[in-house]
Amino acid sequence: MSDESTKPLRVSDADELDSVITSHDLVLVDCYTNGCALCQAIEPVVGNVARVTDATVVMVNPGDDISLVERYDIRSVPTLLLFEDGELVGRMADGFQGTEAVVQFVEGTKGE
């Protein structure tokens, strides 16, 4: 497993995000904002998810590209979005979740 797939990637805008989503089969997107305590708390969780699942994990601050807020209807952070083969297949916007819950989200949502 390459180091790239075991660490969350950071992207700054919709174009970068689209590039990652289209070039990987399974992508977990962590939408966060700076200064958000729950977002900081979930960062090591998504790092763990990157290590133990097949998902490519990407972190993006939708405040840096407001088009993402509207495109993905982001109403709170952290919001986790799961993409499979370029399609949005799941959303978790329940505040902080532990590693086990996020791994189940990633593995339970993807198609068999």
Rank of each mutant, 00 (worst) to 15 (best):
M1L: 09
M1S: 13
S2V: 07
D3V: 14
E4P: 01
E4V: 12
E4G: 01
E4S: 10
K7Y: 01
K7E: 05
P8K: 01
L9W: 03
R10P: 00
V11T: 06
E16L: 04
L17R: 06
L17W: 09
S19A: 10
S19W: 03
S19I: 04
I21R: 10
I21T: 08
T22E: 11
S23G: 11
L28I: 13
C31Q: 12
C31V: 11
Y32H: 12
N34D: 11
C36M: 08
A37N: 13
A37R: 15
C39F: 11
C39S: 14
C39K: 13
A41H: 13
I42A: 03
I42K: 07
E43I: 00
G47C: 01
V49N: 02
R51H: 05
V52H: 07
V57P: 00
N61S: 12
G63I: 06
D64V: 03
D64E: 12
D64S: 11
D65Q: 10
S67V: 08
V69Q: 11
E70N: 15
R71Y: 02
R71T: 12
Y72E: 06
Y72I: 05
D73V: 11
D73K: 15
I74G: 09
S76K: 09
V77P: 02
V77G: 07
P78T: 15
P78F: 10
L80T: 15
L81P: 05
L81K: 09
L81F: 04
L82A: 08
F83S: 07
G86L: 08
G86Q: 12
G86T: 14
E87H: 13
R91D: 00
M92A: 13
G95V: 10
Q97F: 01
T99W: 03
E100K: 13
A101W: 01
A101S: 14
V106N: 06
V106W: 00
E107Q: 14
E107T: 15
G108Y: 02
T109V: 07
G111L: 05
E112R: 15
